[in-house]
């Protein structure tokens, strides 16, 4: 019975969905799906339909996301590189939703999630069905080779857990994404996320608590009593694709040079975005 119940719930949700939204979800590339309707990593576009109403509401009404330059997203494989912030990964969620709702070619962004998410009941397989994968270079390489679009935050946990005082300052960028981009000949699209850095201002990080819980960090955030981020206004700035020549086996200095170029581009876009916005909310 649980199977038919689930399908009935799904039918009810899909019936209420906007036609435009359904056509967009149906337009997600489906070449990699198998006879069970999932791709090798477990992504299922039909499940996206069930999650879409929540995503759309958060996107349109909670964070009121403004998108700039989304027509820059190329066809085929690419790596989307951005600044990470906000304690909870709503930035990835919103970037992904933008690529689905506002891009001229609807795409599903495959983002690299924290490894411990796979241990959480329900969340683990919901993430997987929605196209998220556990962050790992070999997984990322496979996705790019299958012409998927991958979202990477090279700052990782360093970025998402940064303190309020460091907002909009990029921390150290890892080099892994650049080697993968060179190896798989994937263009890099820079994205600046404005707003997320203020959604959950953090002032302290209790490291022993984080260690005890097995979390990457345990920051004390402003809306500690309400477990929601502040309703800041998001601005997403997508830059033109950047192409780099090479095969991924270059010396560290050369790769570092490329990474620096991407990082500087994103920092410039952040500065431009900050100057262009009217206020935090």
């Amino acid at each position: 019975m649980p199977f038919s119940l689930a399908s009935r719930v799904k039918d009810a949700i899909v019936a209420k969905l906007d036609d435009d939204l359904v056509t967009r979800i149906d337009a997600i590339p489906r070449e990699n799906l198998n006879e069970f309707g999932v791709d090798p990593f477990g992504f299922d576009p039909e499940l996206v339909k069930m999650l879409a109403p929540i995503a759309v509401w958060i996107y349109r009404h909670y964070f009121r996301v403004q998108v700039h330059g989304i027509e820059n997203l190329p066809e085929g494989r690419f790596l989307l590189i951005g600044n990470h912030s906000g304690q909870l990964p709503f930035d990835a969620f919103m970037v992904g939703t933008a690529c689905l709702l506002d891009s001229p070619r609807p795409r599903i962004m495959r983002s690299m999630v924290e490894r411990w998410s796979a241990e959480l009941p329900f969340v683990s397989h919901l993430f997987v069905r929605a196209g998220q994968v556990v962050g790992d270079p070999s997984t990322c390489r496979r996705l790019l080779e299958a012409d998927e679009a991958v979202l990477v935050f090279p700052e990782g946990a360093r970025g998402i857990n940064k303190m309020f005082a460091q907002r909009y300052q990029l921390t150290h960028f890892g080099h892994g994404f650049m080697r993968l981009a060179l190896e798989t000949k994937s263009p890099i699209v820079p994205v600046a996320v404005i707003g997320a850095e203020e959604q959950a201002p953090a002032f302290f990080n209790i490291k022993p608590l984080a260690k005890m819980l097995g979390f990457p960090a345990a920051p004390i955030v402003l809306p500690q009593l309400v477990p929601l981020p502040l309703p800041v206004k998001y601005h997403l700035w997508f830059g033109p694709p950047m192409h780099f020549e090479g095969d991924g086996s270059e010396d560290d200095e050369i790769v570092a040079e490329h990474v620096k170029k991407v990082k500087n581009t994103i920092q410039r876009m952040i500065d431009h975005g900050l100057a262009a916005r009217d206020g935090i909310f």
Partner: peptide, 15 residues
Amino acid sequence: GQAPLSRLISVRGAT
């Protein structure tokens, strides 16, 4: 190929 466990179970016609 590979698939979620739940779908394998429904292919078998089991609950």
